[in-house]
C-alpha cells in the first residue's frame, strides 16, 4: 500500500508485549507509540523464541515472533 509501510514483506517488524500464552502461540499487545498501554492484540507463533513469559516484549513479523526485546 502506498504511504503505509510494506509491513509484511519488508524488513519491518513490530514490538509487542505478551499478554496470553496459547501453546505454540502467544497473544501479544502492541503498545502504540506516544500513548499508554492498551493497544491492539494479535496472535503470533513463538517457536523461534520459546519459552516466553507474560509481559515479555517480542519482535513480531508476519504472524511469527522473531526475537525477544531486551533493554
Amino acid at each position: 500500500m502506498d504511504a503505509c509501510s510494506c509491513i509484511t514483506c519488508g524488513d519491518v517488524a513490530i514490538v509487542a508485549r505478551v499478554v496470553e500464552l496459547r501453546g505454540q502461540s502467544a497473544v501479544v499487545e502492541c503498545d502504540p507509540p506516544s500513548r499508554g498501554a492498551g493497544g491492539a492484540r494479535e496472535e503470533v507463533a513463538v517457536e523461534l523464541v520459546a519459552p516466553v513469559e507474560l509481559g515479555e516484549q517480542l519482535l513480531c513479523h508476519a504472524g511469527v515472533a522473531l526475537e525477544r526485546v531486551v533493554q
Binding site: V12, C30, G38, G39, C60
Partner: peptide
C-alpha cells in the same frame, strides 16, 4: 490507542 496499535501491527 487501540486504533494506533492495530495500525502499527498492520503497517497502516
Amino acid at each position: 490507542a487501540t486504533v494506533a496499535g492495530a495500525c502499527e501491527i498492520l503497517g497502516i
